[in-house]
């Protein structure tokens, strides 16, 4: 029984992390129809921003808990700098083009981000210790868990609920939904589509950077952290259904639990369990779990 509990708990922690990263990806796809490869690069940049910004605020003598706040500030800073640069400066010229072509554009952005990050920060590792000490340790069963890791679950819920609420309950959110449904009609009704696109992309960048920022205390922040993130988060949103927020949540849960189960029971399968799940889901639900069937164009 203890083992089942551990598997579920570990799976949930991993799923929370996955969801935060995948949420931005699925949102950007939902609104802009772009599968953003640079997401992983932005994630890595979010880690760097967190290790720079957090000590900066700590330097003012602010209490330790402020380090959690400063990670939001770091992610916001990344979003404010990068989102206009990438969306307005590049992506907007390619709207309506082939999805795969845009995927390749974001891939080249990813390559550039990778080296730009290296040129700015060098290859030496950075660390961030404070945030993980804020919430102390918790004993569950016979195991210690770090409060911070468990709190990632809370963060995932906040992010998911925030985006959900923003889309369904605010004016701009409802306008965004209209743009998703019928961009041309929305434009004809006087919606400034460019602003909606920039905003959605900005939120996507923010969420990627936030995922990176909150991962920073768990890892050594150095080159090469971006690649593995992209592929697992791609898998999550594909499983859930591209553009679907509940889909991303369910996808993250499935992948998180599957991986956790594999570590305990089939450690040799861990390397491809995610892809097996993805193949299995796509065979039965060709467009992912949560995508409504679209009418075919005539």
């Amino acid at each position: 029984m203890d083992l089942v509990l551990t598997i579920i708990l570990d799976g949930l922690i991993y799923a929370s992390w996955l969801f935060i990263v995948a949420l931005g990806l699925t949102l950007v796809f939902g609104v802009l129809r772009i599968l953003n490869f640079a997401h992983g690069g932005i994630y890595a940049l979010g880690s760097y921003a967190a290790v720079i910004v957090t000590p900066f605020f700590a330097g003012f003598g602010l209490p330790d808990w402020f380090s959690i706040v400063s990670m939001f500030i770091a992610a916001m800073a990344v979003a404010i700098v990068l989102a206009p640069l990438i969306e307005r400066g590049l992506l907007r010229f390619f709207y309506g083009r082939d999805e795969v072509l845009i995927l390749l554009i974001t891939y080249s952005v990813f390559l550039m981000l990778e080296d730009a990050t290296k040129l700015i920060f060098g290859v030496n590792p950075y660390y961030l210790f404070e945030p993980r000490n804020v919430l102390g340790n918790v004993e569950i069963g016979s195991l210690y868990y770090v409060g911070y890791d468990l709190a990632l679950g809370g963060l995932a819920v906040i992010c998911g609920a925030g985006v959900w609420f923003g889309l369904r309950r605010t004016r701009i959110g409802k306008v965004t939904l209209a743009v998703i449904a019928e961009p041309e009609v929305a434009q004809a009704m006087g919606v400034n589509i460019a602003r909606i696109y920039l905003l959605a992309f900005g939120v996507g960048v923010f969420l990627a950077a936030l995922g990176g920022a909150f991962t920073a205390p768990l890892i050594s922040v150095q080159p090469g952290n971006s690649v593995s993130v992209i592929i697992v988060s791609f898998a999550v949103v594909i499983i859930g259904g591209l553009g679907s927020i509940p889909g991303a949540a369910v996808g993250a849960l499935i992948v998180g639990l599957a991986r956790s189960f594999a570590v305990y029971e089939f450690p040799e399968a861990e390397i491809f369990i995610i892809y097996l799940v993805m193949v299995a889901v796509l065979i039965f639900r060709p467009e992912g779990l949560f995508t409504p069937v679209k009418a075919r164009k005539i």
Partner: peptide
């Protein structure tokens, strides 16, 4: 996996 980054489990 190589480069997994997350070792909680």
């Amino acid at each position: 996996a190589f480069g997994a980054g997350q070792y909680g489990t």
